[in-house]
């Protein structure tokens, strides 16, 4: 193996020049591809915003305009009243906030029990819980619909909050986080006579704050985006949720659709999500990459 590759009689300058050109070309196509894809991804948002600011006449022009000739903020006011977004926002916020808070309490307590306490059947029980994650939610809906009807919960806030308070996935996520906190901390707290709840609140919760924030955001987004269940059980004016209300307000099957107003309504519904995203991107991305579940 002592013979070595002999350099071919290539002009080294030429070789490196060709390589440089190749590298620049690859870079160029990489950026071109990414920017093109980014534009495609962004286009619906752009179209939503400019359409929401156009007059109906401009929207219906044969040749589309890419910036509104006359900016119509009034579309937003109209959207707000047409879809009674105020009531919808209010309903959704109540359901979202209450269910998130309760859900966090239940999740923290359960995750603590699974992570730190020893009791008979703990692992079996945890395994069973994880197994339920396999089952599609639609399977539960059929019976739950009957259950809430029997309980007389139809068209209440309760029906939107209680059935989905327990998320096995959140318990799993938080338990994994709790397990990483050394058990010695718990034992030390016991020696000092700290109660479980105080320990939970003072040590475990602060140490797993990022996970808790992720859970909060996902749960809030879930309320904001939920559609099927609310439509089934709470489709009255007083309790209707935002997504359902939006779809209901714009389902003309005939006549002239006022698209600019519709787009304004869509923009208003989307805005809170974007704001949350802008400020809490890190937590959303961290939670999402582990879940694969939307909302």
């Amino acid at each position: 193996m002592s013979d070595t590759i002999t350099m071919k009689e290539k002009n080294i300058q030429q070789v490196s020049a060709a390589q440089k050109t190749m590298q620049i070309l690859v870079k160029f196509f990489t950026y071109a591809f990414l920017i093109l894809m980014a534009l495609i991804v962004l286009f619906p948002f752009y179209w939503m915003i400019i359409s929401s600011l156009k007059t109906l006449a401009e929207y219906r022009l044969n040749v589309p305009t890419f910036f509104p000739q006359q900016i119509m903020f009034s579309n937003y006011a109209e959207a707000f009243t047409t879809a009674s977004l105020g009531q919808l926002f209010y309903n959704t916020m109540i359901v979202g906030v209450v269910s998130t808070l309760l859900s966090l309490v239940i999740t923290v307590l359960s995750a603590f029990a699974f992570a730190r306490l020893e009791f008979k059947g703990r692992d079996t029980m945890f395994g069973l819980l994880l197994a339920t994650m396999m089952i599609p939610g639609e399977l539960f809906t059929i019976t739950n619909y009957a259950t809430v009807t029997q309980l007389g919960w139809m068209n209440t806030y309760r029906v939107l909050i209680i059935p989905f308070l327990v998320s096995v996935f959140y318990i799993y996520l938080l338990r994994q986080n709790f397990m990483q906190i050394p058990n010695e901390l718990y034992l030390a707290a016991k020696v000092d006579g700290t109660s479980d709840l105080k320990y939970l609140w003072k040590v475990m919760v602060p140490l797993s704050l990022p996970t808790l924030i992720s859970i909060t955001i996902l749960k809030m987004m879930g309320s904001w985006n939920s559609y099927i269940w609310p439509r089934l059980v709470a489709n009255d004016e007083a309790h209707r949720m935002i997504t359902n209300g939006l779809r209901n307000a714009f389902t003309e099957t005939s006549g002239d659709v006022n698209y600019p107003v519709q787009m304004a309504a869509v923009a208003l519904v989307s805005a809170p999500l974007f704001l949350v995203f802008v400020f809490l991107r890190k937590y959303i991305m961290a939670g999402v990459s582990r879940s694969g579940i939307k909302g």
């Binding site: 948002f45 559609y227 935002i242 939006l246 519709q262 989307s270 999500l273 974007f274 995203f277 959303i284």
Partner: peptide, 25 residues
């Protein structure tokens, strides 16, 4: 960040935007 944007959307709401884009008015 741009590529993550579609995730934080309401699939019904943005569906209406797509419908508007494909719609013949």
């Amino acid at each position: 960040t741009i590529f993550f944007l579609p995730y934080v959307t309401n699939s019904i709401a943005i569906g209406m935007v797509f419908a508007a884009m494909f719609n013949i008015v």
